[in-house]
Design a protein around this nucleic acid. Structure first.
Lengths: 140, 140
DNA sequence: GTGTTTGCAAAGTGTTTGCAATTTA
DNA sequence: TAAATTGCAAACACTTTGCAAACAC
């Protein structure tokens, strides 16, 4: 009998994060991590689940996205004030964002650097640096 | 008779942008540009207007912020998916953002540089590069 | 006067929450 | 069985819109 790879990988991933492997979380984990790095919104993931005959409510998708973010299985990316995006790549990196297509694309972490960052104000510490390169179609 | 500086400056600013100098727009312009660079949300500007006995509806504040953005009198800054921020400094620069206090602070445009930006995907052009340095209180 | 702008209240969007029913361990 | 999770529908916060009254030119 051969192991159902995506399934057991999902199980392990949830266990490692200390989250109960419920049917919904397992299904969403498989969708999110079976095929390389991805950027999803609550709605896109919910649609994808529906299309794959995984029954999950939108509320549960929201909850799950936030739990996963809390467990650093996901990283939230703020690029659009209308919608929240979540990235399965939790390592330090930046993004291209195309406003017309609403597409996010990773920029590998070491391909880019921010130079001469001034000291943060008063008693503040830098938590994170986010670079968003907004792009659009060439012909304007 | 001496000129009412903030008033006529606001008038000129609106004229230059091709916007009719209505009572509401003049008042908001004076609030926005009389005292250095500022970061506002629709609600903060509306509150400020009320506090200064300028009667404007929140809907008009929203409309005005967008018209001003379209006329490059303002620049929208995306840092928080819950709220839209507008910056009276329209030149190229980046921001510190403190999530606990919801405070935005400018980082002067030339103090910081992004190095080794990879080429944008396919037939895309870079429209803008936004760097957000998220900070928090030092004691964690 | 004529076209623009305003303000209200209603509608809209994405997101969160309360709680009973279900599921996991 | 006890505690965690789900799903629904209602509640939310912020934002946009339709339209009649007010205003700028």
């Amino acid at each position: 009998m051969k192991t159902d790879r995506p399934f057991s990988a999902a199980l392990e991933r949830l266990r490692a994060a200390g989250l109960r492997p419920t049917r919904q979380r397992l299904a969403l984990t498989r969708l999110l991590y079976s095929d390389g790095d991805r950027h999803v919104t609550a709605e896109s993931l919910h649609k994808e689940a529906m299309a794959n005959r995984v029954q999950v409510s939108l509320a549960t998708v929201y909850n799950t996205l936030h739990q996963f973010t809390g467990a650093t299985l996901l990283r939230e990316v703020v690029v659009d004030s209308a919608r929240s995006y979540f990235d399965t790549n939790t390592s330090h990196h930046h993004h291209f964002f195309c406003e017309e297509s609403q597409q996010l694309m990773d920029i590998p972490g070491d391909a880019m650097r921010v130079e001469n960052l001034p000291a943060p104000p008063d008693g503040a510490t830098v938590r994170r640096i986010d670079v968003v390169v907004r792009v659009g179609p060439s012909e304007s």
